[in-house]
């Protein structure tokens, strides 16, 4: 697939703004997800920040480029995978003899490091992945209803 034919440059200021802020949105969102256990923020907030890259891509390059860059079916499957991962990590507490969402492997790593606090870290990552893919899919779904003539602007 040649993406060069699908690239349609819109207003140069909007395109430069999207180019400038898209890497920051992705990196900052992923950092908020990864350090959600030891810093302010968390999975939900970081997922929403990272999924704002999708709308920046639409503002800069239009819907066809956005659809070529992000696979919507993969996003939909990724959301289900995140939900299943959360349930599976919550079930570890049940198998280990506690409550359903009990922090089972709680004594791994040193307190304050990224990988510590047992399943809390992994559950935070699962929720972050789920929200990232889910909100990106929702934005693509809503933008696709605007019609293809939006690319002509």
């Amino acid at each position: 697939m040649n993406n060069g034919n699908k690239m349609k440059v819109r207003h140069v200021i909007v395109k430069c703004g999207a180019d400038m802020y898209l890497p920051f949105a992705i990196v900052f969102g992923l950092a908020v997800i990864l350090f959600g256990t030891v810093s302010p923020g968390g999975g939900f907030q970081g997922g929403v920040i990272a999924s704002s890259a999708a709308i920046l891509l639409y503002l800069g390059y239009g819907f066809k480029t956005m659809k070529a860059a992000i696979n919507p079916h993969l996003m939909h499957k990724g959301e289900a995978f995140g939900a299943i991962a959360y349930i599976a990590l919550a079930t570890i507490g049940l198998v280990a003899g506690g409550n359903f969402v009990r922090n089972a492997i709680w004594n791994n790593g040193d307190p304050g490091k990224v990988i510590s606090a047992g399943t809390i870290t992994y559950m935070s990552w699962a929720v972050g992945f789920k929200v990232l893919t889910g909100v990106a899919f929702l934005l693509m779904l809503l933008i696709s209803l605007l019609g293809d003539n939006q690319d002509e602007m």
């Binding site: 030891v38 968390g42 919550a90 969402v101 922090n103 709680w106 606090a117 809390i120």
Partner: peptide, 21 residues
């Protein structure tokens, strides 16, 4: 009990994990 230095994370994912789910 949870070895998490951030007190909000265990509340969201452990004490009130059903809520997040």
């Amino acid at each position: 009990e949870t070895e998490s230095i951030n007190d909000v994370a265990p509340i969201v994912f452990d004490y009130r994990g059903y809520d997040t789910m």
